[in-house]
């Protein structure tokens, strides 16, 4: 890929990242951190790519370990975030009012 295109994607993503979470009530800090944590579990895609490219046993072993860890991060992260947010169920309206 063009180096300039990569830099552009990076810079724009930084600003989007800043923008989307700039105003969030402290109640949601923990679920938001947990959700962002689950999103970086998408490194699983990278782990699958390197496993596909692996030629030696060492490379394959490390890739397989990476896949296991990344899957735990991604799937566990989304499940645990959902469990946290489940507790807020049915109280959404009042909460929305409070956080403005």
């Amino acid at each position: 890929m063009e180096p300039m295109a990569i830099v552009a994607i990076f810079v724009l993503a930084v600003f989007v990242g800043f923008e989307v979470v700039s105003k969030v009530s402290s109640t949601l800090h923990t679920p938001l951190m947990s959700g962002a944590n689950a999103i970086h579990g998408v490194i699983l895609v990278g782990a699958i790519i390197v496993a596909d490219h692996s030629n030696t046993n060492l490379e394959l072993g490390l890739s397989v370990a990476a896949i296991v860890l990344a899957t735990i991060n991604m799937v566990g992260g989304f499940v645990v975030t959902d469990r946290m947010l489940e507790m807020f169920k049915g109280k959404g309206k009042e909460r929305a009012k409070d956080s403005k």
């Binding site: 700039s22 969030v24 490194i43 895609v45 990278g46 790519i49």
Partner: peptide, 28 residues
């Protein structure tokens, strides 16, 4: 790190996802 891996592996998705988490995580 996920964003940097995305650059090495030539994956736009990893760059976007990793950078988003890096930026929002810093603000958070």
């Amino acid at each position: 790190t996920v964003a940097a891996s995305g650059y090495v592996l030539d994956s736009t998705l990893l760059i976007i996802a990793g950078t988003l988490v890096g930026a929002s995580g810093t603000i958070l």
